[in-house]
Design a binder for these strands. Structure first.
Lengths: 99, 99
DNA sequence: CAATCATATGAAAAGTAATTCATATTATGG
DNA sequence: CCATAATATGAATTACTTTTCATATGATTG
């Protein structure tokens, strides 16, 4: 296991904006502008982040007219979040574990 | 699911040194000095990182004489790495996915 | 093909995290 | 208790990442 080199992948989750995007996309695919709107964030900020997430296949993209529709790679992301949730549940009850 | 707030947890894995520590501890518990030695890293650098990892219960610590023995929380970490491994396997074959 | 909506891009600036270095603690064996 | 081995701590520096801002590119529609 080349676990040593996985840290790049985890960067996709180690940031507030990226996690917000991921959370929004849990409800279904959406285009970039709408994501930005929902999060109340700058278009280009969202675009930069979407690119990184898609680059690592945390998100998938498809072109639809002039829109690019981003969707969550649930197969990877959901079980991952599940693990974190469980971890926090059992180790970080109320505590300042995560901040 | 408060997934939005999980990003702090992921920081434990989004860094080279921390992942190196985690990897070393996959082989079993070890004290701080030995970890530093094996990784060829500065004692205090390792110490700072160990603290953060332990703070989030990614690692557990126990005092043993003047040594502090750090061990990996395998229950959380192993399945997490498994997911990443599988993801890379199926999406990042040879590609510049992760860098 | 001009206008416009949607998105991307790149470089500079800002923000945040990691490392270093010097020093402080803490524990134990003699 | 003193010496020392093991580890922690904090502030300053350095290194990275993220954001911003201005601008560019792409697609579509009339």
């Amino acid at each position: 296991m080349k676990s040593n080199s996985y840290y790049g992948f985890f960067r996709n989750f180690a940031n507030k904006t990226k996690m917000a995007i991921i959370t929004v996309l849990m409800d279904g695919p959406m285009n970039a502008t709408d994501i930005a709107e929902i999060l109340g964030e700058e278009q280009s900020k969202i675009s930069h982040n979407l690119n990184k997430l898609a680059h690592c296949h945390v998100l998938e993209v498809r072109q639809e007219g002039k829109n690019r529709i981003y969707s969550l790679n649930k197969e990877t992301v959901m079980p991952m979040l599940k693990i974190v949730e469980k971890h926090i549940e059992s180790h970080c009850k109320g505590a300042r574990c995560i901040e």
